[in-house]
Amino acid sequence: MFTAAALVVAFAAVLVLYRAIKGPRVYDRLLAVNVIGTKTVVLLALIGFMYERPYFLDVALVYALINFIATIAFLKYRELGRLD
């Protein structure tokens, strides 16, 4: 059951990848990568249960914590034109 769920989530990430590559504007790509990051968190948790190693939940938690760093940097760069 966990395998099927992980497959569906991975397939959904591939669908979002279309928007990340095709997306006409940078914001489309940014949002797509953000969604892929969220999918990755769920995928990591599912993989942990799929291979019967539930401590992978820690990795998923760290992912959820650091997922937004790159997004914030991108938005700051778009708004200010620089990072410092």
Partner: peptide
């Protein structure tokens, strides 16, 4: 700029593959 965004997605999935290979610290 778009290439940088796409590389971010690449790294996210790469970390999932490290986790599948049971290399949790490398995934971190």
């Amino acid at each position: 700029l778009s290439a940088t965004v796409v590389l971010g997605a690449y790294s996210l999935i790469m970390a999932v593959i490290w986790t599948v290979l049971n290399a949790v610290d490398v995934a971190f």
